[in-house]
Simulated assay, not measured.
Amino acid sequence: MELRTLRYFVAIAEAGTVTAAAAALHFTQPSVSRQVRQLERQLGLELFVRDEGRLRLSAAGRAFLPLATQLLAQAERTQAAAAAIAAGHLPTLTIAAPATTLTDVVAPFLATLGPGDPMPAVRAEVPISVYGALARGADLAIGATPWPAGLDGRPLADLPLWAYVPAGHPWAGRSEVSVEALVGEPLLLPTPDYYPRRALDVAVASARLAYRDVHEFTSAEVAQAVAASGRGIAVVSDDARFDLHPLRVLGVGISLYAAWEPDHYAATTIRAVVERLAAFCVARYGPEVTPL
């Protein structure tokens, strides 16, 4: 079954006669009639009732008409999408990143996109598998480790790690805190499979220190909620919630990297979006997050 014969069928159904349909399609009447009869044979359906030179849709034809119309519309959309792909345009941009990065970095950036930008889609990935998402259909992956060999990429930002305390905490008047001071306090930390925790663990080990009192959470937002209740200091990379006061943890940060397939048909568009995302990070968090 060819799209051309479907177009002939729909044209006759709309025009009411083969002659009118042939004129609209700029084909000869015998050619249009022959193609429609071929379609009927392929489908095993009598689509029209022939009545004194006019054609009326049969019951089968009335049932088949919306299906044919939908198929032709989908074919037109597919052709338009193929043309966009051939031109290197990206109709939809799928971004894969850990949940925290999606919430605090990607989502605010997406709010700045305009009508001429690709339609965004996001995919939450655990950190260890984020770059593998490119092989599963994502266009852009954002992780906290350098991208693997074989991919194109760019450092995005070096974001701070924050220690959050409630307004009444003795540290609420400070803007930063050392790792040495932190380890002696009750800490509300992400579990070790999260990059902020790993970064803090490395800093603690490098300073030959040890935690005194640690409570682990799989949700940075929950850790902040518990900190707001006065039960400890939340150390996470997320933006502040629950009116907590942020202190930058000295000497510890999270580096973000963007990666994409080098042979992606819209690699130029993806790179341009990444450059805008890097500039957005600097505008949002300050020039100090510019990667070295």
Rank of each mutant, 00 (worst) to 15 (best):
F9H: 01
G88T: 12
A68T: 00
V252Q: 01
P166R: 07
H245L: 07
G16C: 03
A234T: 00
Q29P: 12
D243P: 07
P155V: 14
R284Y: 01
Q35L: 13
A279C: 02
R7C: 03
G168A: 09
S58K: 03
W171F: 14
A21P: 11
L110D: 03
L71D: 11
L102M: 13
S58A: 14
S206G: 07
V130Q: 01
P66I: 06
R77L: 10
D238Y: 09
L57K: 06
A283Q: 15
S58Q: 00
I270W: 08
L161S: 13
A135P: 05
V282R: 15
Y285K: 03
G114Y: 10
S129F: 01
Y8F: 15
A149N: 11
I12Q: 00
R231K: 15
A68N: 04
E125G: 00
Q70D: 15
V106A: 05
G253T: 05
E185C: 14
L156C: 05
A111N: 08
A225W: 10
R276A: 13
L110G: 04
W162Y: 13
L90I: 05
A13V: 04
E275A: 14
A210Q: 12
V177Y: 06
L200A: 14
R62N: 09
T101C: 14
L244Y: 10
S206L: 08
V122C: 09
S178Y: 03
I270G: 04
W171A: 13
A144Y: 03
R4T: 04
V183H: 06
